[in-house]
Write a protein that binds this DNA or RNA. Structure first.
Length: 496
RNA sequence: GCGCCACUAGCUCAACUGGUAGAGCAUCUGACUCUUAAUCAGACGGUUUGGGGUUCGAGUCCCCGGUGGCGUACCA
């Protein structure tokens, strides 16, 4: 054989054994490789901000973080310590730490381990702010290696599956999720400043509604009951308007049992808000202010970089009538066309349609294909057909249309809003219309909800409602092409 | 769903028309008291995604499975 026992197994196994051996050696030296805490008193960012003063004052600081690199040069060593605010170089000398501590750092510590380090700041000959380490403590020993230091972790599958590693080594990923958090914080602040109540409504529901989508099913053993995961927040939030809460919003997970691609994850975050006594014009102005504010928060102006150009969010944005846009894109007015004519035209234009779809959804297929991709600058597509908007109020002057808008930017639908239908008799008729579509095979058509109708019968004031897909908003605001990259833990097939 | 493509060491990647699987980083040993992709010398590490087939011979060609990427369809 010629191989010693020490060298059997793959590299991964050997890397792990080396680290386990180090853990054992540390314990033998009386060092706990997994202690209980560390009295950190500064971050690497604090060090950078206060560098001049702290160097002058000879201030001793205690940092904590993950060792990302290690350069041992005999009796001097360098390394980079990374905390959640950045990195700082560590400088360790044999004659300053003593043989035991120095050798322990050289022999038993590796990139990937968590350390606490105490010392004074100085600037090296090459000009890098560094910590001259006077004492250090192992805070947690890693048993797996970090990815390669120069190329890092690039495989998109590994990055998504092992987001902890991706976050540990890819700074731009940490930065993106900080921006996502800022976006959510800004939104909450915006609503809170205007007297909105943040609420939470059920995810598990006996009936699903509020959107056109297929649900996930689950089961409640205690009540021996089949349940659905919600596909929208709408119907519960409107019950709250009936209850007199007047201004509510919810930011929560929605689940839709449909395709996955770069713009769709089975679970995603939706913002919905409902405001009593507003109509959809009020809501449009509100959306303009919210999104312009968000863009300003992230870029300092109303302009958002987008490809070679930019999107201009300064209000007001154009209002584009649904049928006017459709007529222009299709080259003729589709309002008078019957289903057969629409199907023939779809076939002619290469637009895929489902045989179960009725007129309304056929029209929307044209819109999705011909109109929406061209909506690059922020705008509102307004006054959709009633047939595809069963929860929206009929338009006050356009027969067959409803008071609804969809917000578009970069060819993406960012939000959907309407003057909410609050006539319980008309709402029942619309539900029955939807149930008719279901019976004809459209399994995405909406389900009649008796309790919601009862709520409307108790009386809902005139109300405007809005839904915004947060993940898509984050994609737009951060210039991210794939929804996977704005989700910390995107849906993945289980590992084999 | 469908179509195309990819999968080689822990990570990032090589290996011509089929002919003994390599490198850098990481790891281990040694040298080195201002380095930073440290450097220098040496060593270890592989069922080439799994299974089957063709062939004297398969990382390479064929078939089936797994996972992913991109495109396409629907939904936010």
């Amino acid at each position: 054989m010629g191989m010693t026992e020490e060298h059997t197994g793959g590299t991964a196994e050997r890397l792990r054994r080396d680290k386990e051996r180090k853990v054992a050696a540390l314990r033998e030296q009386g060092v706990n490789p997994y202690p209980y805490g560390y009295a950190r008193d500064a971050t690497t960012a604090d060090c950078r901000e206060q560098a001049a003063a702290w160097i002058d004052g000879g201030k001793t600081v205690a940092l904590a973080g993950r060792l990302m690199s290690q350069r041992v040069m005999g009796k001097t060593s360098f390394g980079h310590l990374q905390d959640h605010r950045g990195r700082l170089q560590l400088f360790l000398r044999h004659d300053e730490l003593g043989a035991e501590s120095y050798q322990r750092f050289v022999k038993l510590v590796e990139p990937g381990d968590h350390l606490g380090a105490r010392g004074r700041l100085f600037v090296t000959r090459t000009g890098e702010l560094s910590l001259r380490v006077e004492s250090w403590t192992l805070l947690a020993k890693a048993l797996l290696p970090l990815p390669e230091k120069f190329h890092g972790l690039q495989d998109p599958e590994l990055r998504a599956r092992q987001r902890y590693l991706d976050l540990a080594v890819n700074e731009d990923v940490r930065d993106l999720f900080e921006r996502r958090s800022r976006i959510l914080r800004f939104i909450r602040g915006f609503f809170d400043a205007r007297g909105f109540l943040e609420v939470e409504t059920p995810v598990l529901q006996a009936l699903y509604g509020g959107a056109t989508a297929r649900p996930f099913r689950t089961r409640l053993n205690a009540l021996d009951l089949d349940l659905y995961l919600r596909i929208a927040e709408e119907l519960h939030l409107k019950r709250l308007i009936v209850g007199g809460l007047e201004r509510v919003y919810e930011i929560g997970k929605i689940f839709r049992n449909e395709g996955m691609d770069r713009a769709h994850n089975p679970e995603f975050t939706m913002l919905e808000t409902y405001v009593a006594y507003w109509d959809y014009h009020d809501m449009a102005a509100f959306v303009e202010e919210l999104l312009a504010g968000l863009v300003a928060e992230l870029t300092g102006s109303a302009r958002l970089p987008y490809g070679d150009t930019h999107l201009d969010f300064a209000p007001p944005w154009p209002r584009i009538d649904y049928f006017a846009a459709l007529t222009e894109a299709a080259g003729r007015d589709l309002r008078g066309e019957d289903e057969d004519a629409l199907r023939a035209l779809a076939a002619e234009r290469g637009i895929a349609v489902d045989p179960a779809w009725q007129r309304g959804r056929l029209l929307d297929a044209f819109c999705a294909k011909l109109v929406e991709p061209g909506l690059v600058q922020p705008c509102f597509l307004v006054d959709h057909p009633q047939a595809i908007s069963p929860l929206a109020k009929e338009h006050r002057s356009k027969p067959g249309q409803v008071e609804r808008f969809e917000v578009f930017a970069a060819g993406f639908e960012l939000g959907n809003a309407f003057s909410e239908l609050n006539d319980p008799v008309e709402q029942r008729r619309r539900f029955e219309q939807q149930m008719g579509l279901r019976a004809k095979g459209d399994d995405e058509a909406q389900v009649l909800d008796e309790d919601f109708l009862r709520a409307l019968e108790v009386g809902m004031p005139p109300t405007a409602g809005l839904g915004v897909g947060i993940d898509r908003l984050v994609m737009l605001l951060t210039g991210t092409a794939h929804i996977r990259d704005v989700l910390l833990f995107p849906m993945m097939r289980p590992e084999a």
